[in-house]
Design a protein around this nucleic acid. Structure first.
Lengths: 239, 239
DNA sequence: GCGGTTAGTTGAACGTGTTCAAATTCGGTT
DNA sequence: AACCGAATTTGAACACGTTCAACTAACCGC
């Protein structure tokens, strides 16, 4: 009941500055040496603060990953929103958003392997799938709401309501692929995006057809159930 | 080139015994207290060996997870093979295998959260998706080969060839769901299995239809590409 | 300016995963 | 029975993530 959801320990501009300094330093070192190779001590030293101070702003090393997520998302939105002004079909809008996401994450490719380390652990507070209330996840889904909103395509209400979430899951899948993708310039990922966006677009058209109503209802019910199961895990609080 | 793939350090019956002792102790403690809460020191102490000795048999704590995978798989096969003698349709065979898998893993539900912790990290030698040569994965796919082999259903060659792998991926998805499933007696997972096995069966029938050949080719090509991308990651060796 | 409350900062200490050189045991050979 | 090399076992040492009690700085009402 009385579980607090506050994350930021920042209360003053001074703290904001220190927090940013530590995060920037950490991300820079993650980029250069990877996550495991970067120690909290090294981050603190390079940032010119004490070890304990780093823990004042980031509850654990893993929380730096969440901050990284947040940063990536902010950058992504900053690029995507203006770009979305121009596109109008669902297909082009989705394509734009997906490509920009890869663009934004590019510098962190070798570090990104850890992103999914906690994704499967229901206990982890960083699991983006298991925590309905996770603000990064919320914000991320919101972007896909914008992708859907802006289209004139006729999409049934039930599907339209679920679509942002579905697209978000799809986008997580693409990121998972990208993490493993070693092809030069991530060509494979871009090709996969091209192909799958096409497929997604077709499936939405198909699924919007009145004839598909029963199947669609069935499939959406299944999706709901999957989501419920994942979200039910917020019972246990600490640890 | 000269990368060695040996995992077992066991050369004598004595070693086998100690290895088993350590593994059994570890799994028992994982069951009771979970993975994080169980320290290597505690395992060693309870098993009556030294800390270093545990590391002689298991390169790291994570490798105990792989051994756990292996154990689960062995148990699963031991139950599944006899059961498969009786079933003959693809649907019933798959249903049997899936239910037994959950049955076997049941005692480890709360520990199982860590199973997917490394699943997303391309670097990890434990990632079952990224290591084509992983013997546990091989053996696991083999079981699904048996599921497919035993059916008389007409399945096109190209699909039949890929099907065991596809079913294995499907089964990993179910496990991921099960990990998050907090419903009493895992009812939700069993229901999901019932539903999805039905769907899988229908999709195989559908996909086997000659009319679907172009779409099937297309989809299988995509699957191949996904697999390639995951497997390409075995370039880097140590660390 | 002063006292007090909160924000921010420090570094020592602890627990845990991991490594390693040295010691011990084992199985076979002479 | 003595010996040798390999397999096994040991425990101390190290590095790193994390915690925490104590300290300092900043701010606010008076």
């Amino acid at each position: 009941m009385a579980a607090m959801r506050k994350k930021k320990a920042v209360k003053t501009p001074k703290g904001d500055q220190t927090r940013k300094l530590i995060l920037d330093t950490a991300l820079e070192m993650f980029r250069e040496r990877g996550y495991e190779q970067t120690t909290m001590r090294a981050i603190a030293e390079k940032a010119g603060v004490s070890l304990g101070n780093a823990y004042y702003y980031f509850r654990s090393k893993e929380f730096l990953i969440q901050a990284f997520y947040q940063t990536m998302h902010d950058d992504h939105v900053a690029l995507a929103l203006p770009a979305l002004e121009k596109d109008d079909t669902l297909k082009t809008r989705l394509l734009t958003v997906m490509r920009l996401k890869i663009e934004v994450m590019k510098p962190y490719h070798q570090f990104a392997g850890v992103l999914f380390k906690t994704a499967g652990d229901p206990q982890s507070p960083l699991n983006p799938f298991a925590d309905e209330a996770n603000p990064v996840r919320q914000a991320s889904i919101q972007l896909f709401e914008k992708v859907v909103e802006g289209t004139k395509a006729r999409i049934p209400k039930d599907l339209r309501a679920e679509l942002p979430y579905l697209l978000w899951v799809y986008h997580m899948g693409i990121i998972l692929f990208w993490i493993h993708d070693r092809s030069p310039k991530h060509r494979r990922t871009y090709r996969l995006i091209d192909r799958t966006v096409e497929m997604v677009d077709k499936m939405i058209s198909l699924g919007s057809n009145p004839f598909m109503r029963p199947l669609r209802k069935h499939a959406l019910a299944l999706v709901d159930e999957l989501r419920d199961a994942a979200d039910d895990v917020l019972d246990s609080d600490d640890n």
